[in-house]
Every structure is written in C-alpha cells, then in structure tokens.
Write a protein that binds this DNA or RNA. Structure first.
Lengths: 342, 342
DNA sequence: TTGAAAGCGCTAACAA
DNA sequence: TTGTTAGCGCTTTCAA
C-alpha cells in the first residue's frame, strides 16, 4: 500500500534552499530554538507557510531517537470509558506535538506484555497510558521498564507508587453522595460492589461506610454485596439487588459500583412494584450515558475521564523519567431523579 | 521526553552479525520475502527470538516511504460509535502490520482540512478512515487527495462514488423492522429523523416508507418529523415525540434515527401514561448500550460498526490506490420488549 | 547566529 | 539466494 502519486512533500532541504539558509537553520526554526536571528526566522517561516512544509515524523524520530508517539489501549468491549480516554489523550497529545497510537487489548487473552512486545514495541512509543485493568498487569509494567518506556497508570490498584498514577477522587464523590442520601432521610444502605480486580470497587464501598459513620450512622447500616455476575452489568445488578433486598429488607437506598449495575437495580424495582425514589433510592457511578437515559434518570458520580487522560499525557511528556507521583482529579456528584433530586 | 535509560534496542545489523548474514537478509526474513533459504531463515529467526528484535518503525517508514500508520478521528463528543470504530480499526491494523493513530476532531470548529494539515500530515499516514460527519467534508477530501493519502469513508452522504465507502445496509434493517411492527398489528407509524447532515437520516425514513408501502400500507401511514433539537438526543426525542403524537394521534409505533432519541420517547410515554409497547411501540437504531439498558428494553437495529472499521482498514491496505467501491455490511434487527418482542 | 558533516536503522536497486 | 551501496529526511555534534 504505497501512495504512488503523492506529490513529493516539501523537505527541510527544500525549504532551506528557497529561504537561502542551511537545513539546520530551518530545523532550528521549526523546533523553536531561540538562537535564530529574527529576520532569518521570518524568512524561513514565510517559505514554510508558502510550501505547506511539515516535518516528516519518521525522519525526525529516527534522527532524534524519540518517536513523538504515545500509546494506549482500547479494550475489546464497548465502553464509553475508552472513548473518553482516547479523546482526552488525543487532545493533550495534539497540544504537545505528540500523536496517539491505539492498540486493541483482548480481555480474554490477557498476555498484554506479549501483545506489547509483538506490536506496539516497534512503534518505540515515548510513553504509554495504561487504563484499568492493564495498569495492574505487572508483567506488562516489567516489559515496559525493560525497554525504558515510561508509562502512566490510570486508577491502579496494585503498587500505586510504582509510577505516576492518575486517580479520580472516588472517596470524595461517594461521601458527597452519602451526605445527599442522608439528608433525604435514608439510614440503611445497600452497596453492590464491582469486579474485584478494580481497586475502586473496594475504595467506593469503604468510602460509603466511612461517610455513613461520619454522619452518625454505623458500619452495620451498610450492607455490601459482591456482584452475582450474570453475563452483563445490568443483569448482574438485577440479580444482586434481589439478593441484597432479601438479605436486608430495610435498605432504602442502593449504591452501585457503576451506572450499568444501577440500571439493573432500576429494572428490578420496576418489576417488583418498588417506586424509585420513593420506596428505593438508587445511585450509580461514572455518569455514563446510561445514567441520564435511565428511567428515572440516575444519580451518579461523574468521573473526569477526559481530564484524567489529559493529565496522564502531560505527566508523560513533562515529568522526569523517574517521577512517581499521584495525580488526583476531582469528581462531581450528579443528583438526578433516582434519589429524589430535582 | 527522551527515555534516556532505554537499553539500546537490537537493530537489524545486530541480528545480522549474530546470525552471520547480511542486514539485507535479515530484512528479507522479517518482511517474509520468499527468496531466503530455509536454513538461513531459521537461523535468523532464532537470533530474532533470542534478542527480541523488532523492526524500528521510524527507520522502516523513512526508508520505504510508507508509514504503516492508519489515521482516524474521534469526535469530541462521547459516543460508543467511535469506541467501536477504534476497536475494529485497531484490530484490523494489528492483523495487517499497521498501527492506528487517533486524532481528536472538534465538531464546533469544523475546519478539519486545516486540522489535518497542521497535525496528522506530519505522520504521513498511509491511509485515513473517515467516519461521519468527516466523510462528507469535501475540503478534507481535497486535502488528502492533494497529499496522495488514500482514505475510506464510513457511511458518506455526499458523492459516495468518490472513494471506497463502507455502508451499513440500513434500509434492509429498517425493512425488517417494518415487517415486525406490521405483524404486531401496527398500521400508523411515526418517524423521528436524525441530524440532516447524516445521510442515513433520510435513508432510514425513506426505507420505512418504502417498506410500509410494500406491506400494503401507503406513504400517508408514516408521519415523519425532523428532530426538535433540545440539547441532548434523549431530550430531543422527548420533545419531538410530544409534537409527533399531537400532529398524528393515531400513531401506534415510533421509529427513531438512533437509540438515544428513542430513550426520550420512552420517557415521554412513561410520563404521559402510555404503556410501552401496549399503547405505543418504540424502536431505535444502533443497538447501543442504551438500548439494552432502557426500560423496557429497546428494539433496535444493530449496526456492525466494528466490522465496518475492519473492512475499511482492509480496503485501505489491500485495494489499489484508485479503487472506488461500495462495501455493504449487513445489519441485524434486535427485537426487544419495547415492541412486544420477548 | 549559522553551517558542514555524520549518521539514526532501515529498504531499494542493483550486482554477484 | 545473498550481499553491497546509497540513500530516506531529519537531528546531533562540532566547528566557524
């Protein structure tokens, strides 16, 4: 697949000749090196504008041994999460002169390190963004470190100080939610946990318990249930809600690990004559499309995924290679009809 | 951002030396050129495995004047569509030895051609995938052709024969849907159109009318309304449904351009005491998450977006530069509760 | 502030 | 079947 009839693109040398300077000077102008006389710079810039010259990324990469590429993964499962992540990452890359390379990650065949070595490695990415659950794939981290490829992890669970890591301030959002529910008069709470390989699953449950205690309740007011997986999140939410309400019938509010689980809880309520939010308040997490489309619309906590991706790319490009910091991004409680918000 | 402490990666020359052959021979092995003696090939492959050698993409691009990069855009608006597209494209790229570069596309500042020239151009992508609405940006197409960059368009509206174009067979899905509704006894239909800059908006409406006529009805049995935009799709669906049912109170089934509009219709039905599907059947399009999470779950037409992206990449890599064909991908009617499916 | 020369790691074109 | 040579279009390093 060669694009035969491409008009040969202008090169540095072409621009140099037309501007009557050396190629190196053009390079200095393009890279905004300060030591170029203003008049020279203007002349070169004029020729660049005229010719539409753009650096050849491959040549630059080769010479500078920097690829100006940031890599990331999309999971092989439909999710708004990854589309937001890509959006934020692409936006930040563009602002910093980088490009975003996306690779598909196969959840069922989780030898991510192998996948990396056989494909992404040849791009010599300058950095990688690792969303969950890849951020906790230790073999992948080892492989990246071996190649000297830096990485930033999004919401990692394991060994959070091993690298720069970006977190949403989940606990804060959950505690806002607890306060909201408490003010609406709720005293007994149900929690449907998420997958155990997501750090945030335990974090969110614990944050709810802590918040309820801080408001004057006790840990025994919160009944947590792990997911009874049933194929999809909504189906799982449905099934787990049934169990939860059987185990603790006095629960008046259910908080779920994500919005999709909450949709299942809503479905359960509908089918069993529980009015939402009168008989049962329901709250999710993520502020995905699902939450605003739900009936009634779902109270949820909005994760700033786009921002998190932007921060990740910035850290990749600007931090020193051995930086190991925690970047915490604020979340936002979105109150909707399912908890009696207006 | 240089990864200073990267162990210097093995090069072709390193492998050549260790295997006792010329660099060119190693190149032939890596590129699966047939004219290498089996014994030589094995020896070289062994050294490659041993050293973990991987071609340097930048060097290869420069020498071969091919980037092995495919470019695409994510819109700056959350949508499963783009995440599925990226997924399919990444999968196909990987299979063919290419990499996927993603750029954010700003809907509000739609000078896509300019955007391309200032950023993606430096990657010298071998090909581009253009989803709607970019596929109909004539200035962008001109710019790509000027640079000799080939492109494949997904569901273009304008000038469909200008390039290879991939389509979902919308009309077929709509006609299956019409038959299903007809069999359920519906005779008067409402249609909520999509944005007028999407070709499929008119296609789907017309397909419904044609299908109804084919079933023995007439064009006047279908009342179409353009969207009364209200900030989001669900809100728009709500508002448009209200208008539609006022204009044509005898409608018993509403078909919308996408699932999100249908969610608004469902909300309208709930708030106005219309039982779904008893009083009003509702059907959407796309089979997005929204449709299975809706209450009741939504009958919809499933677009094979992942497949479409795969086909697009394959066409990019394998077709001749001047190919101009139409690739039609089959859709699938998904019958759920909102039309009385079981 | 500017330029000249060398070379990044690969492939194309040719020769053996 | 294999090897040699000469670049691809930049940046680096060093010199002017």
């Amino acid at each position: 697949m060669k694009n035969e009839d491409a008009r040969r693109a202008a090169t540095l040398a072409d621009v140099a000749e037309r501007a009557g300077v050396s190629a190196k000077t053009v390079s200095r102008v393009v890279n905004e090196h300060p030591s170029v006389r203003d008049t020279t710079r203007e002349r070169v810039k004029a020729v660049i504008a005229e010719t539409g010259f753009q650096l050849n990324l491959a040549a630059r990469s080769l010479a500078a041994s920097q690829s100006y590429l940031i890599g990331t993964f999309v999971a092989d499962t439909a999710s708004l999460y990854y589309s937001e992540l890509a959006r934020g990452a692409a936006r930040a890359c563009r602002a910093l002169g980088y490009h975003l390379v996306t690779e598909e990650f196969d959840q069922r065949n989780p030898v991510a390190a192998d996948h990396y070595e056989r494909t992404l490695r040849q791009t010599r990415c300058d950095g990688m963004i690792l969303p969950p659950p890849l951020c906790d794939d230790l073999a992948l981290l080892d492989a990246l470190e071996r190649d000297g490829v830096r990485y930033v992890r999004i919401s990692p669970m394991l060994d959070p100080d091993r690298s720069v890591a970006v977190f949403a301030h989940d606990a804060d959002g959950v505690s806002q939610l607890a306060r909201h529910l408490w003010e609406k008069g709720h005293r007994r709470f149900g929690v449907i946990n998420g997958p155990s390989n997501f750090a945030s699953s335990a974090t969110r449950r614990d944050a709810l318990i802590a918040a309820v205690c801080a408001l004057g309740g006790s840990a025994s007011d919160v009944t947590a249930s792990k997911m009874l997986w049933d194929g999809t999140f909504p189906a799982t939410g449905y099934r787990t809600a049934a169990q939860l309400l059987k185990d603790a019938p006095d629960i008046s509010a259910i908080f779920t690990f994500n919005d999709e689980l909450a949709l299942g809880v809503l479905g359960y309520a509908h089918e069993n004559g529980l009015r939402v939010p009168k008989d049962l308040a329901v709250a999710g997490f993520d502020d995905s499309d699902a939450s605003s489309f739900a009936w009634p619309s779902l109270t949820t906590v909005s994760q700033p995924i786009v921002d998190m991706a932007v921060r990740a790319v910035q850290a990749l490009v600007r931090d020193s290679p051995h930086a190991r910091r925690r970047i915490e991004c604020p979340v936002r409680l979105v109150i909707r009809a399912s908890t009696g918000g207006e």
